[in-house]
Amino acid sequence: MTPSETVIRVEHLRKVYKHTIAVEDISFDVGRGEIFGLLGSNGAGKTTTVECLEGIRRADGGSIRVLGLDPQRQASALRGRVGSQLQESRLPDHLKVWEALELFAGLAPRALDWRELLNAWGLAEKRSSSFASLSGGQRQRLFVALALVSDPEIVVLDEMTTGLDPAARHVAWELIEEIRDRGATVVLVTHFMDEAERLCDRVAVVERGRIVALGAPVALIDEHAPELRVVFTAGDRDVGWLAGLDHVRAVTQGGPRVTVHGDGPVLALVAAALVERGMVPRDLRVERPSLEDVFLGLTGHHVED
């Protein structure tokens, strides 16, 4: 997709802490109305990157434009236009949920009705609970609600669904899509590949402070993990001959279980050949590559060391 209007432009971003190069060289654009994902191993530099966008950290090199403005030098002009959830933050222990929402709504130039956010994010029951008494997932939802209360044009969510139960996560996904449908742009840092695949128009995979892949999830899968796997149970019959079929790259047999690695129409070809030889396995199925395969392929070797 070609974004109509660029709302975030990051060029050769660089950020060095005392002993670590957190971000070496990162560039990307985000278009209005996009949901843009940042994936990457722990310590890859995702949080550092979004904190530079949010104006919380000063970049050491490169340039950042958010809605055409410099988040460091023109921060006051961005107030209320960018909503940030933050991977790590707290509120005062004794602050109540409704007080937090009312406070941040009051500090924003223009605010949504925080009572609606309270309901939408499932916090109505907890409205009078103190921050300290909230569970991890409830805190997380409160932070997302706080990020949204100023009705921002850009929403930055750093591991928004970490700590949410499966039902809450699905609700969160729907709410994020709703936010986008209302015209906001979303930058989403996540470790959940299903979340990225489901929500993001484009994702960038960050590794050691650089972007190693960028594109729509489907395009990345085609490019980096085109391989399909056909899996079935063959008992003790030898199926080595499958390797001779078109579109088959390799056959591995572990005990009774056979995995055929291939691409394109490999499933149909394998099925036909098996039937022709009188084999009709009941559990023949194809495993399609997912973003997770792309991710592991691009970053897996780093996770180990």
């Binding site: 919380i56 921060a75 006051s76 960018v82 790590e88 933050s89 707290r90 005062p92 500090l107 100023s150």
Partner: peptide, 20 residues
Amino acid sequence: GYRQGGVLRRFRAALVPMWI
């Protein structure tokens, strides 16, 4: 406590000036 716990970061993220 505010600084360490990240309460101040929340205010900064909301672009609330420190003097406030």
